[in-house]
């Protein structure tokens, strides 16, 4: 099974490369951000549970570890993106010490690769119940935070250099964890439907975590935009105005808030909702959609983005994840594979 995930991953990369050459725009970027956030967020969640000795995750932790192979995809897909598209950034013409094409590519590739290596070491230790589990979990979490912060700042925020928001990077790793929680909810839901009630508790906990993360996400969004709005500095406000004052960005921005906060939050409040397949599935789909649309809002006003190729890239890079998910819910109980 593990080998098949890599084969699907390779196929995904080849298709993504082909699509990227055809599109010639930034349409790989939203898909790359999404398919990087999910596996990194999931492994971070498992690592955090190991560090806090969280027992609620025990029944599903082994399955979360199986998302590890998906982490090899981001470094390679990033290389495809970086080698073709650094010219889309304004700083390409006037590089600075930090924003310089070669350094940009090397450091981001390096961090993505390091994240995979540390995730590998952590998962191996955790599966073997090694006393080093905590050690590798800490390093993985630190690397995850750094990598996601770099994704936010380098890949996306630098489109609008010299505009800055100090919360931008943190917002990215919070969202990655949020996507990790949503994916854990989806996985436990599918396992519950397929393999029985032993996954009900973890589904309930996932629902509660969605509730918490929805509120937390909204808090961070509000903290970021209130500060900018209140400061009312023209250079700073222009970034927000560009993304909320004109159609279709206004409508899409409203959709993001509804999808990432309002609906999952309100929907997950009742106790029964947390184990309701329809409601959990709706929340997960909305969170995924909200994340994607949000990234499109960040990128599209400043970089060319073809809707068709953006959609195709999502499907292409999602192939190994779809295969993995299918295998995880179909395999017999208690099955274990080597890392």
């Amino acid at each position: 099974m593990q080998r098949n995930v890599y084969i699907f991953g390779l196929a995904a990369l080849i298709i993504a490369l082909g699509l990227d050459l055809l599109a010639g725009d930034a349409s790989l970027l939203p898909a790359l951000l999404f398919w990087t956030a999910i596996p990194q967020g999931i492994i971070a969640l498992a690592a955090a549970a190991d560090l806090s000795q969280g027992r609620w995750i025990v029944s599903i932790k082994e399955k979360l570890h199986r998302f590890l192979p998906l982490l090899i995809l981001p470094p390679v897909a990033f290389l495809i993106y970086a080698l073709h598209h650094t010219h889309l950034y304004d700083w390409h013409e006037h590089p600075t010490a930090w924003l310089e094409p070669t350094f940009f590519t090397i450091r981001n590739f390096g961090f993505q690769l390091l994240t995979f290596v540390l995730a590998f070491l952590y998962v191996r230790a955790s599966r073997g119940e090694s006393p080093r589990t905590g050690f590798w979990a800490v390093f993985y979490c630190l690397c995850f935070v750094t990598t996601q912060t770099m994704q936010g700042i380098d890949w996306v925020m630098s489109f609008e250099y010299p505009w800055i928001s100090t919360l931008y990077g943190a917002f990215f790793f919070i969202e990655a964890l949020y996507l990790g929680v949503a994916t854990m909810a989806l996985l436990s839901l599918l396992l519950l439907l397929r393999q029985g009630r032993q996954y009900e508790k973890v589904l309930r906990d996932s629902g509660a975590l969605i509730l918490g993360f929805a509120l937390f996400w909204a808090g961070q969004l509000y903290a970021q935009y209130l500060t900018i709005w209140y400061g009312n500095i023209p250079d700073e406000v222009a970034y927000v105005a560009k993304r909320v004052e004109h159609s279709p960005w206004t409508e899409l921005s409203v959709f993001v808030v509804l999808a990432m906060f309002v609906i999952p939050f309100v929907g997950m409040i009742p106790r029964r909702a947390k184990v309701s397949p329809a409601l959990v599935l709706a929340a997960v789909v909305l969170i995924y959609a909200g994340y994607i649309v949000e990234k499109v809002i960040y990128i599209a006003p400043v970089a060319p983005l073809s809707p068709l190729f953006t959609g195709l890239q999502f499907i292409a890079l999602g192939l190994p994840a779809a295969y993995l998910l299918r295998q995880l819910i179909q395999e017999p109980k208690e099955a274990k594979t080597a890392v």
């Binding site: 100090t166 903290a223 500060t227 209140y230 400061g231």
Partner: peptide, 27 residues
């Protein structure tokens, strides 16, 4: 609790003073 301490941070972040006006202040 989270909202209250965020409000305290905004005593500073809402101004346009260097070192204070920064979005990360609340968390």
């Amino acid at each position: 609790v989270i909202s209250v301490h965020s409000v305290v941070s905004w005593d500073f972040a809402m101004s346009v003073v260097p070192g204070w006006h920064t979005t990360i202040f609340a968390p």
